[in-house]
Design a protein around this nucleic acid. Structure first.
Lengths: 354, 354
DNA sequence: TGTTAGCAGTCGTCATGATCGAGTGCTAAT
DNA sequence: ATTAGCACTCGATCATGACGACTGCTAACA
């Protein structure tokens, strides 16, 4: 299920230490306040004394799983502590069946286009995980030409609508150097449809079709633009990242602080960083958990992400997941991401599966 | 420029009172702290004593333009005070020319589709006004059929792509009851294109064309779906409201409070209320200023909006503007909204103008 | 009559300091 | 290995009082 950036060192925790670590993490996730030895005893139903627990807590801190904000405070999980928790300790529960039903219902209820569909996914995910969600629309990794339409807007402009095999739609305004009327536009688009219909970017470039080489000025420039768009469609994670549930994240107590809040908003509004992380996910398998921005920019230090690629690899796939503070409800979020991923896999399989 | 929900009663302020009110509002917008008599004297360069100013402040409070948070605090503008300010007192400056240049540059630099265009508008507006921005993509009030394309996805599904005259693109999945191959789909779309191309919703309904009445099962159901989509395109403010610059708003001091922050996020995330306000704007002319949610839901009590319709009325128009706390920088925001509106008017005129 | 100086009074803000208690680590006994 | 006990640390809370930013009012003044 989870990636492991670091192999968690030569750690071998005793069963009791694992119990204690689990209680500390769960309790801290719940209350957002440092967890002391007596709380562990009470909540965890331990039948050892607080002193023993204190010793164990000390050991866990020594090993790097816990930290103390200040001398007389309880313990707080470190990134490594969370990592161990999600890998070995968290219970992998399924979403309650009624909730599954409700979600399925929402998807089947509406006839949707891809964008609305993606938006709905983001909303459902945010609501279910009670966290901020991210979803990229599904798209193919190999752009394959499906259909081109050129529509005259005015004397100097036309609208180019390009549909790819993954049913993604790309539109662009074309500035014309000469006046070209709709009849001519239709002729050009028909010709190109016939010539490159069903081909991938590579196919087109490698094509030895005699007519391709002899395209005239305007036709050639349209094709060039088409190739550019197809290239863009392959490279980009997505035209847009759909987001929802920001309010869930910002009502967490860690964001009472102004600077923390601004950090969160920057992370969420700037496309740059998200693009980076999400596009990396496209190559992965299964639910990935990134804690404290492991490996990537320091801007994500205090955030965790639970992400998963979805769809049919190559044909129509995207990434979905949730973001939150490192102290996020991993259990619930993982369940939600996993379930929604499976659902999307299913839906896309039905549409694009061979 | 501005709408006036209330005709500002029988108010006649003396010149001095207007000066003082102006200083109080400007100063409060700047510092977010109540403004006292001595501050008015210092900032406003008044050559009367603080005592006199106090008298005037009392009068302004009496008249409903100012309020006191508590006995020994300075004055704070009321909604009515802001209203008077934006109607009579605010200086209508233009955006500095270098800034205008930068904005123009951004728009001309990129070849864009409508959605990217709208997104850029939101970003520019947020950045210029240093506030949260809202933009709806331009669309025609009378949906006019332009082009239909049906694309087979699999045996039971096809993708319907509908382009309207305003160059808005609408896509939808169609579930087929029978297997229909691409050839048949093309035949149907060609037929419909020929039949209803260039017509409005009304035209189509009123049409007496003999072939329209004799459409068979599948063809009829496609047309029906087309009409549904066109209807939807007319009614909705927009498929999507583009938002940006939320971080600007949330870093205002009034949103340090958790409940205020959640109120802001609800306002921004929920489409319902925004839809309502924005669609009302489509019928208006010029920059509209809504202070403290005047007239509408109480959920907007502490917020102001500066909105403006843009585009070519009927052919391709939308709404853009900014949102902020009632204590927002009206001057700058108004300039920004006005300038961006003019720019968009220009751009759309170039594209769709007769 | 409009303006102003002066003054008593209100009330939030801030720094101070005492108290409380949650939680620790250590030690010595079991 | 576990545990009871204890001294200690340190943030959170709260009352206190000084401060000062305001006010409104009154009485004198131009």
């Amino acid at each position: 299920m989870a990636s492991s950036a670091e192999p968690n060192k030569g750690v071998s925790l005793t069963p009791r230490q694992r119990d204690i670590l689990k209680v500390v993490v769960q309790r801290y996730i719940e209350t957002a306040t440092p967890v002391g030895s007596s709380a562990v005893q009470a909540v965890g139903g331990m039948d050892v004394s607080t002193a023993t627990i204190r010793n164990e807590l000390g050991a866990l801190e020594e090993a790097g799983f816990l930290a103390q904000p200040h001398t007389s405070a309880g313990r707080v999980p470190t990134a490594q502590g969370y990592r161990y928790y999600v890998e070995h300790l968290v219970e992998r529960t399924d979403l309650p069946v009624p909730e599954q039903r409700m979600i399925q219902h929402q998807f089947h209820q509406l006839r949707l286009d891809m964008d609305q569909w993606t938006r709905l996914t983001a909303a459902v995910l945010a609501h279910t995980a009670r966290a901020a969600s991210l979803v990229t629309p599904p798209h193919a990794t190999n752009a394959r030409f499906r259909h081109l339409e050129l529509i005259s807007i005015n004397d100097a402009t036309c609208l180019m609508v390009l549909v790819l095999q993954d049913s993604s739609i790309h539109q662009e305004m074309l500035m014309l150097s000469d006046v070209v009327d709709q009849g001519e536009l239709s002729r050009v688009s028909n010709k190109l449809n016939a010539l490159v219909g069903g081909l991938t970017l590579r196919d087109i470039k490698d094509s030895t079709h005699p007519e391709l080489a002899t395209l005239r000025g305007f036709e050639a420039s349209v094709l060039e633009r088409v190739l550019l768009v197809m290239k863009g469609a392959e490279r980009r994670t997505a035209q847009e990242i759909y987001r929802d549930g920001l309010s869930h994240m910002l009502s967490e107590p860690e964001f009472a602080d102004v600077t923390k809040r601004e950090q969160a908003l920057r992370l969420f509004e700037q496309r740059r960083l998200l693009d980076l992380v999400l596009s990396r996910m496209l190559g992965a398998t299964g639910v990935q958990i990134i804690i404290g921005g492991e490996g990537s920019q320091s801007e994500m230090e205090d955030f965790s992400m639970i992400l998963s690629p979805y769809g049919v690899r190559g044909k129509a796939s995207g990434v979905l997941g949730v973001v939150g503070p490192t102290r996020m409800a991993y259990g619930r979020s993982i369940s939600a991401v996993r379930y929604v991923t499976e659902l999307m896999d299913q839906l896309i399989q039905d549409l694009f599966g061979q």
